[in-house]
Each structure stands twice: as structure tokens, then as C-alpha cells.
Simulated scan of single mutants.
Amino acid sequence: MSHTAHIRSHRKPRSRTASTIAMRAGVAGGILSTVAVAGASAAANAAEPVTQTLELPTLTADLSAQVAQSAEATQLAAANYQLQAERDAAAAAAAKEAAKDLAAAQKAEARKKAAEEARQAAAERASRDSQRTTLAAAADTGSGSVSTSTSTSASTATGSAAAVIDFVRAQVGDAYVSGGTGPNSWDCSGLVQAAFRQVGIDLPRVSQDQSTAGTQVSLDNLQPGDILYWGGAGSAYHVAVYVGGGMFVGAQNPSTGVVEKPLSYDPPSGAVRVL
């Protein structure tokens, strides 16, 4: 046993004053308050969502210039598109107007052609009437015997003459068109030329030349296949084909077309023979 065991402690017992206890309690309370505040702050921070802030790039001078150039290019493209649209509209309007002008010109030309044909037909009828009067007067004095002298020739057409006659008779009923050469419309010389082409004879195209294409024959000595003409030889204005029996076939005018008529219907001025 220690030699001091029986001796009381020489230290004085600590006396805890009320102020010391209060201070220690305050310190402890402060610590606990700090811990509580820290815990609450951590809980609050844990509850709030984290927001990330992004910084936009600074608009530099080069980028600004590029944006301006892009805007200018867009405006220029829009202006060009508008200009092209205006040009297209103007071109379409001009084409439409040109089509109207062309149609009007074509109508005017058609009217002019129709009037010319009517004038020519009227002139031909007037000239034929004059020729008819002259020939009728000659017949009254015994100088003309066209129908009687040729009445027996209807059945004598053979060979090339028969082919020519068959051709012109096949066209009876076709239309008369100035400048027509077939196959469904003719003028007088076009019909005669086409008929003789069937037998290998190439006649001139117009009446004036056809009236001198062969040998001149008198009207009282006609044969089937002879070419009849109206007007002077070399200046004839109409031709037809004598088919025999006092008849002829010709493309007369726009009113009658191709017809077969007796010589008395429109007495010819002369005739030529090429067969």
C-alpha cells in the first residue's frame, strides 16, 4: 500500500462557479447551433437544383462583318428574284401581245386573199360573159358551129386522150382554190396540168403558157383531150379540157368548183392540141 493512501488529497476541490458553467453551456450551445445551421444549409443546398451558366461568345468585329455580309447577300438575292419575276412577267405579256398581233395579221391576210379571189372570179365571169356574147353573135351569122361539129366525137377518145378525160371527170365536184394543184382542190391550169401529167406530158403551170403549149385548132374541129382556153393565145385567163360531145371539164371558180358543162355554158376563145 502506498504510504500516501491514507492521506487525503492535498489538492483543493474545484469549485465550479455559476459563470463557468454558464460559459461552458454557451459554448456548447453555440457549437450545436453551428452544427444545426450547417446541416440545414447542406440540406437546402442538396434540395436546390444546380444551374450551369454558359457564357455566350463575344461578337467580334470579323463575326459582325460576316453577319452584315450575309444580310446584304440575302437582300441582294431577294432583289434579283424580284427583278427576274418582273422580267418574266414582261416577257409573257410581250409574247401574248405578239400572238394577238400575229393572229390579227393572219386574219387580215385571209380576208385580203378571199377578197382577191372574189375579185378575180368576178373579172373572169365578166370576161367570159363578154366572150360568150361575141361567140353567140358569130354563131348567129353562121361563122361558128362548135356544138354540131363536135357532137360525134364523144365516143372517139382513146389512149392518152381517154386517160386525160377520165382524170378530169374524176375531179368533178372538187373545190376551186386559186393556186390549187390537188388532190382535192384546183385552179383551172392546175387541173389541166395534173391531167396531162397522167400521160407523161409536162405542161406549163399557168393558163397563158398552156394556151400556146400545142398546135392551135379551130373550135369547129375539136377532139377529146384538146385544151380549151378563154382570152387570147398567150394571154389566156382560163383553160379547161374538151371531153367530147360538146362538153368540157374545168375548174371554173370558187362558186362552182370543178364542173362538166356544155360549150354553150361558157364558149371558149380557142383551143390547142398536145396529144
Rank of each mutant, 00 (worst) to 15 (best):
A68C: 04
T215C: 06
A71Q: 15
Q69D: 15
T181V: 14
L222R: 01
A105F: 03
S151L: 08
L56N: 05
E109S: 12
E109Y: 06
L275R: 02
G225H: 04
T181A: 15
A103I: 04
E117T: 13
A163T: 15
T156Q: 12
K100M: 08
V274W: 01
S9E: 08
Y176E: 11
D140F: 07
G180C: 11
A89F: 07
N184K: 10
G214K: 03
G179R: 06
T156E: 15
S149V: 00
S269E: 05
P183V: 10
Q198N: 10
S151Y: 00
E116K: 07
P57V: 02
H6R: 07
A161P: 02
E72F: 05
A77F: 06
L275S: 09
D266H: 01
S211V: 08
Q120E: 11
N184S: 14
F167R: 04
V37G: 12
F196W: 14
A157S: 15
N253C: 09
V164L: 11
T60W: 01
D226Q: 08
G246K: 00
T74L: 13
S207E: 07
Q82P: 00
T34F: 08
L102N: 11
K96F: 07
L203V: 06
A251N: 06
A18C: 04
A46P: 00
P13N: 12
V192G: 03
A42S: 10
A236L: 12
E97P: 01
R8W: 00
A271L: 10
V199Q: 05
S151E: 06
Q52A: 10
Y229A: 07
A40K: 00
